[in-house]
Amino acid sequence: MEINTIHNQFYIILGKYIKARINDTDDASDVLQEVFIKINENLGSLTDDSKLKSWIFTITRNSIIDYYRKSSHQKKSELTECMMQKTMQETDFDNSQSLDCCIINFIERLPEEYQGIIMDSEIHGIKQKDLTEKYSLAYPSIRSRVQRGRSKLKEMLLDCCSIELDRRGNVMNVTSKKSCSGGKC
């Protein structure tokens, strides 16, 4: 697989993953850049393409740990034991792979008035306030459409997939229901 394809497929996902663990936006962007450098340098060492996603997230997790180790040495900030344990315990990143691969198909099946807004806010990460200009709607209308769109999307997903969550709401397992019609899970 080529680095451009990997970049296009994982850039947004990795960016959100890193930003959820590193509060400083500039530092998170630096770590994201380092991750893609490491991926590019070591892509030849990956022998099994089916393990690409878990390999990429291992590189990302290790880069986050390295960031906190460097930060603690430079006295920028201290890495709490809780954060280190949380990051090190995250080893299986493919739990929601079944859900990831079909979420866009479900969004495309939403009523037209929700599709673009949900795609922009949830997939592209555009803030709802920024969508007011794009869709020529007031902020409360955008907010309502996002909420209703999320609700409809959740309903569609639960009709088609069995989704197992942990106590914090993280996806642990996704399986397609045999009764699912019209969507691939």
Rank of each mutant, 00 (worst) to 15 (best):
L137Y: 12
N105W: 04
S136I: 13
R143S: 13
L153R: 02
F106G: 01
Y135C: 14
D94M: 03
C102L: 04
R150V: 15
G149M: 10
S121P: 05
R145L: 08
D100T: 04
M119Q: 10
K86I: 06
T132M: 12
L110K: 03
S141C: 09
R148L: 12
K152W: 10
S98H: 04
I107D: 02
E112N: 13
E122Y: 11
I117E: 06
S151A: 13
Q85V: 01
N95H: 03
F93Q: 02
K127P: 01
P140V: 07
G116A: 09
K152G: 07
P111I: 07
I123A: 10
Q128I: 12
E81W: 03
I142Q: 10
L153A: 02
E113W: 02
C102E: 00
N95K: 08
E81M: 04
T87D: 00
K154I: 07
R145V: 02
G149P: 00
G149F: 04
C101F: 06
S96M: 02
L131Q: 04
L153W: 07
D120V: 13
E133S: 15
R143P: 03
M119V: 05
P111H: 09
Y135G: 14
L137H: 08
M88C: 01
Q115V: 12
E112T: 14
Q89W: 03
S144F: 06
M83Y: 01
L110D: 04
R109V: 05
I104F: 09
R143C: 07
L110H: 05
G125F: 10
Y139L: 15
Q115D: 05
E108N: 12
D94N: 08
I104N: 07
F106R: 01
F93L: 03
D92R: 02
D94F: 00
Q97S: 01
C101E: 09
I118T: 11
P140D: 07
T87G: 00
I104M: 13
F106I: 06
S121C: 10
I142Y: 12
S98R: 04
I107L: 05
C101V: 14
Q147D: 13
Y114V: 07
P111W: 09
G116L: 06
Y135S: 14
D94H: 00
Q89V: 09
N105R: 11
I104T: 10
Y139P: 05
E112P: 07
S144M: 08
K134Q: 14
I142S: 10
L131R: 03
D92S: 06
R148Y: 08
L137D: 04
S98L: 04
Q85S: 08
H124V: 09
K152Q: 15
V146Y: 03
P140L: 03
Y139F: 15
P111Q: 08
R143G: 01
S98P: 06
G149W: 02
R150K: 15
R143V: 03
E122P: 06
L153V: 05
S98T: 02
G125Q: 10
L137P: 09
D100L: 07
N95Q: 06
C102M: 09
